[in-house]
Computed example of a mutant assay.
Amino acid sequence: MKFFEVCDPYYALIKANTKENAMKLYTETVADDDGNLRDEIKEVGMLYAAVKHSRTLTEDQELPPISDVLEELQSNEETILITDGNLI
Rank of each mutant, 00 (worst) to 15 (best):
N17H: 11
K19N: 02
D60N: 14
Q74I: 04
T58P: 03
E5M: 15
V6N: 08
D39T: 08
T18K: 02
M23E: 00
E72K: 10
R55N: 14
K2P: 04
T29K: 15
L63N: 04
L57V: 09
G45E: 15
I80D: 01
T18D: 05
I66P: 07
F3D: 09
A12T: 00
S54A: 15
P65V: 05
L57H: 11
V30W: 05
G35K: 00
A50V: 01
A49D: 06
K42V: 05
E5D: 11
M23W: 00
R55Y: 11
T56M: 10
H53W: 14
T58F: 14
E62K: 12
K2G: 14
R38T: 12
T27E: 05
D68F: 10
A16E: 03
V69M: 06
V69S: 00
E28V: 03
D84I: 10
E28F: 11
M46G: 07
E72Y: 03
G45N: 13
K42H: 13
E59D: 14
E78N: 07
F3Y: 15
L70Y: 11
D84S: 10
L70E: 10
G45Q: 12
E43Q: 12
A49K: 04
E43I: 07
Q74A: 06
T58W: 05
E78G: 08
V69Y: 02
E72A: 08
N76G: 11
Y10C: 01
I14K: 01
S75M: 02
T27A: 06
E59G: 09
K24D: 06
E71G: 06
F3M: 11
E20Q: 10
I82C: 05
Q61G: 09
S54P: 14
I14W: 14
K24T: 03
D32C: 03
I88C: 07
L47Y: 11
D60R: 12
E62W: 06
E40Q: 06
E77W: 00
A50S: 07
E77I: 13
E77N: 08
R38S: 15
D34V: 01
T58S: 13
V51K: 15
L47H: 09
T18M: 02
L25K: 00
V30A: 01
D39V: 07
T29G: 08
I88H: 02
K24E: 09
N21K: 05
Q61P: 04
L13M: 13
S54D: 10
D33K: 03
P9S: 13
E28W: 12
S75N: 03
L73W: 05
F4C: 12
I41W: 01
Y10P: 02
A31P: 00
V30K: 01
A16C: 02
L81M: 08
E40T: 05
L47G: 03
I14L: 13
L81K: 12
I88T: 09
T18C: 06
A16R: 09
N86I: 12
F4G: 14
E20M: 04
D84F: 08
L13H: 13
K15E: 03
T79N: 12
T79E: 07
T56G: 07
E77K: 12
T79C: 10
T79L: 06
T79M: 10
K2H: 15
L25V: 02
Q74N: 09
R38Y: 12
V6F: 08
A50F: 09
E20N: 08
V51C: 09
A22S: 05
D60P: 02
